[in-house]
Design a protein around this nucleic acid. Sequence first.
DNA 1: CGACGTGTAAC
DNA 2: CCTTTTACACGTCG
Length: 375
Amino acid sequence: MEYSTRFKKTISIILMDRIIMHVDLDSFYASLEEKRTPGIRDKPVVVCIYSGRAEDSGAVSTANYKARGLGIKAGMPIKQAKRLAEGTDRVFLPADKEHYSDVSDRIMDLLEDYSNTLEQVSIDEAYLDVTEKTGGNWVRAEETAEEIKEGIKGGEGLTCSVGVGPNKFVAKMASKHKKPDGLTVVRIEEVKAFLENIPVIELHGLGPKTADALYELGIETAGELAAFDLVRLEEEFGRNRARFLHNISHGIDDSQVEHREKQQIGRIGTLKEDTSEPEVVFEKIKELSGDLGNRVMGEGVRFRTVSLIFVDTTLKTHSKSETISETDDIEIVLRVAGKLLKEFLEENWGTRLRRVGLRVSNLSRGREQKTLTEF
DNA sequence: CGACGTGTAAC
DNA sequence: CCTTTTACACGTCG
């Protein structure tokens, strides 16, 4: 093949119109609990993460739609959720992550059959590049989405919301558009109208900080953001962030759907009471390290960086990390953690801790790395 | 450039 | 009153 032709072909593969799907399982944890305990289906169901610090301390992980109707939302303190649910026949349950994880794995396996590349973003969400499987045909893509919904319904008895679009961002926004049990297809020529009136805070990847900054500039919707001068945006947010904002407001997103390897594994926990006692904190770290060790083993990874995460009484987060030579030994993690804890406590005299976490990163998989001398 | 610490965001 | 886990960008320092 002539060089220039090959070049064009490469370009065309990269820039070819794609059809991307985003699948989002509806109030996943709560739906699984509804399945497990028949009879709670039409009650408010609230799945919680209890911190163990006091009765009802902790936060809401997932609320079913009945509970959402009462104003209960993920992230909310359990106490507050209980107040909102007062007088109703409501169900509060602790999260059973292991079970949810098993079901998630089965669903991801099912999704794998519908695309060449599956990108799992979280326990209940994934992107699929269905360009090849559908031959770039949007009608077939919509049929595929319906097939997936039926498959998950038939296999696991769960509903999901699916978005189909020309890229990951639009697909994600589309899946958000109608839920639960939704299916939204946004073709390239429909992107502009679809995004135009969406408030900026609802744009994926744009959080409260950025939204506030945009309101200051008089920008409230994606359409207004799209029309805003890019140079002014760059002055405000810097080159990269401005580019990102500009692009998503126009529904532009060239990022590929790709299988992602985990890059870090961590565990964090809440202390029984606020403390700056090294012994108490280290006990918690030991507890966390057991769990972490199991997960590191399960993933079959080795790591180079060990981090401690500290949340003080004001809820400010600090971290301390050290990079060492590659290992998979959790005893070494504990040794490094002890050292980092000592350093932190010396550098932050009198800081009382509420929560503490342990994390390993700089992961590598597969065979044990040969040292230079063995080479 | 790698290591380290913080902030933002999503779940 | 305030959970968990992960990703990524960015500034800083040596």
